[in-house]
């Protein structure tokens, strides 16, 4: 397993994409740091990158990588190694590469110009969302035999979770405005990893607003041990669920 991961990681880290992605992140982080006067504003600007661009790149890259590596995966499958290990080594390599690019890309400017808790949260959210969407991408890839189709599915999932879902939630909130909605919306947020990541950031950036009205309910929820555990658990589930489903299919898939 670790041998497989070692080689998969070695290949992916040396790819041009890894370098470009890291460079892109460094440039984005540097320019945001240069333009913004305080850390709060840096977090704000980076947040859109983390919850929009990072999942998008993760989804597209992971799908492409899976199909580009299909022959290599086949070669591995002909070797005396477990299928699960082949799968996990590929997925983990993608996740590790994406995370590493983020950590280096954003971490470097952070070390240089400082960071606060919201920036650290942001980085964690970015890493988790990368993992979630890499999982989605692998899920789409193992269920289709066509690269274009798989990319289409990955993109659809990305659009669904970062745009369509919130539209539906807003619609629901609007439709049932006369009812107490706090618990329902909270539950709905749990069902979307992008929203979960975003809400964790809101707890840092918009705490004052969240303390007002029913917002206090959200704030209380996320400042309690149970709430944090639940949110973290759900995020973990979002990382594991697509990956597990993809792995189960991978075990039975024909190559």
């Amino acid at each position: 397993m670790f041998k497989l991961l070692k080689y998969a990681l070695y290949d992916i880290v040396k790819s041009r994409f890894a370098l470009l992605y890291t460079l892109f992140m460094v440039l984005v982080a540097i320019s945001i740091y240069q333009v913004s006067d305080d850390l709060g504003k840096v977090s704000l600007s980076l947040m859109n990158i983390m919850i929009m661009i990072v999942p998008l790149i993760a989804a597209v890259f992971a799908t492409t990588h899976f199909f580009n590596n299909l022959e290599f995966i086949e070669l591995m499958l002909a070797q005396p190694v477990k299928r699960i290990h082949v799968f996990l080594s590929q997925l983990l390599a993608v996740i590790l590469m994406l995370s590493l690019a983020l950590i280096v890309g954003f971490g470097l400017p952070m070390v240089l110009w400082g960071a606060d808790s919201s920036l650290i949260t942001l980085l964690v959210v970015g890493v988790v969302l990368s993992a979630v969407f890499a999982g989605f991408a692998f899920l789409a890839s193992v269920y289709t035999r066509d690269k274009a189709k798989a990319i289409g599915i990955s993109l659809s999932l990305w659009i669904y979770f970062s745009l369509v879902y919130d539209g539906l939630v807003l619609y629901i909130i609007y439709s049932f405005a006369d009812y107490p909605l706090e618990k329902a919306t909270l539950a709905l947020m749990m069902l979307n990893p992008v929203d979960l990541g975003r809400v964790l950031m809101l707890m840092q950036l918009d705490i004052s607003a969240l303390m007002g009205y029913t917002g206090a309910f959200f704030q209380e929820f996320f400042s309690e041990f149970m709430g944090v555990t639940l949110a973290g658990g759900m995020l973990l589930l979002w990382v594991l669920l697509p990956a597990m489903l993809a792995m189960m299919k991978f075990k039975k898939r024909d190559f």
């Binding site: 998969a8 040396k14 790819s15 590596n69 070669l75």
Partner: peptide
């Protein structure tokens, strides 16, 4: 599979390895 040596039709390998 350790008993088997397999030569695929088209061998494609990780490009950077």
């Amino acid at each position: 599979r350790s008993l088997i040596g397999y030569m695929p039709q088209i061998g494609r390998y990780p490009a950077n390895m």
